[in-house]
């Protein structure tokens, strides 16, 4: 985006007297970014490198243009991230000169925690939630931007845009602050923080639509390619590196697959697909009848798991 480039914004409505759906969402998100920066003492962007995070980064660059985003970017790396994700992250950091902080729990793997053998809820807590909380506390961040959307999941559908967290980073769904109009109350006592969700009102379709219209740079894992896979417990896993723990009789098979959501590679289920372009992928998504979180083993390990994880301090 350059300030002098006047290009017809594709998301603008034919009727100049009213904002289109996407233009309205875009402006709302920018407003949320600016409001947080104006009120928080020390904000941070939780950068997960997925599609939502990528849209959020795009919006953050717009919100403060021509200044750079006035906050650091925190990536909680489990050590089992897809290689493509780390490469994409480093490309974006270099392209926009971002201030990147990588949080990682080095003690748990040394103690034998890994995504194959450790029960998933425990693995998630140790490798994602705990390092996140430690990094937030260590750096004294009082506001953290997350890419959560209300259409993702029933507990998120209930959450405020400014989601208050107590000193233990926990969410209390029964005591959320009223949030009227676009007036966000970011006032905090020492130790308290807010999680801020600029994409609260976006749907999965909005995200893809925006990526397509704005050419938002994206990790290639979202598009179908031939990848080395193995089917385990009904999920297609992509063997991303040599640390794969094989079961008896298992071998890698090439399949044409893509991902709808990304996480640690041993815990992310791929879908078989021929959609190797953004448009064909969106066409496939629109005719599919499963939710995007279905490929995320982190979520369907327990009922009401998202609410429980949020109460623990996960996003």
């Amino acid at each position: 985006m350059t300030a002098s480039a006047v290009r017809p914004a594709p998301i603008h409505a034919p009727d100049p007297q009213r904002l289109s759906h996407l233009a309205r969402l875009e402006s709302e998100s920018i407003h949320i970014f600016r409001e947080t920066v104006a009120e928080a003492r020390k904000p941070v962007f939780l950068y997960s490198i997925g599609k939502d995070s990528s849209v959020m980064l795009h919006l953050a660059l717009k919100a403060f243009y021509p200044a750079p985003p006035p906050f650091p970017f925190l990536h909680v790396a489990s050590g089992w991230d897809f290689g493509d994700m780390i490469r994409h992250r480093d490309r974006m950091v270099a392209a926009h000169n971002l201030d990147l902080i990588v949080a990682h729990n080095a003690e748990a793997p040394a103690a034998g925690v890994d995504p194959f053998r450790t029960p998933t809820p425990e693995y998630t807590r140790l490798m994602l939630t705990e390092p996140l909380k430690q990094a937030l506390t260590h750096h004294g961040f009082d506001a953290a931007f997350g890419g959560g959307r209300r259409d993702e999941e029933k507990a998120r559908a209930k959450e405020r845009i400014f989601s208050f967290r107590n000193a233990a980073h926990a969410w209390d769904p029964k005591a959320q602050r009223p949030e009227l109009w676009s007036l966000y109350n970011g006032r905090l006592n020492p130790g308290e923080s807010v999680r801020v969700f600029p994409l609260s009102n976006w749907t999965e379709l909005d995200i893809w639509d925006y990526i397509r219209l704005e050419n938002v740079p994206l990790v290639p894992l979202y598009l179908a390619r031939k990848r080395r896979t193995v089917v385990r417990d009904g999920q297609i896993l992509v063997v991303d590196d040599e640390r794969m723990q094989w079961l008896n009789g298992e071998t890698a098979e090439e399949r044409l697959v893509r991902f709808r959501t990304l996480g640690c590679w041993p815990l992310s289920g791929a879908v078989e697909s021929r959609a190797d372009t953004l448009d064909s992928m969106i066409a496939e998504m629109l005719s599919s009848r499963t939710t995007e979180r279905a490929g995320r083993m982190v979520d369907h390990d327990q009922s009401a798991s998202m609410e429980r994880k949020k109460a623990e301090g996960y996003f």
Binding site: A13, L205, W208, D209, R212, L213, D279, A283
Partner: peptide, 19 residues
């Protein structure tokens, strides 16, 4: 539910512009 990628472009352009 556009079945083909060719239709997606039109469909999404329309979606983006809806109120």
């Amino acid at each position: 539910h556009p079945e083909h990628a060719e239709d997606v472009s039109d469909f999404l352009d329309r979606q983006a512009r809806l109120p």
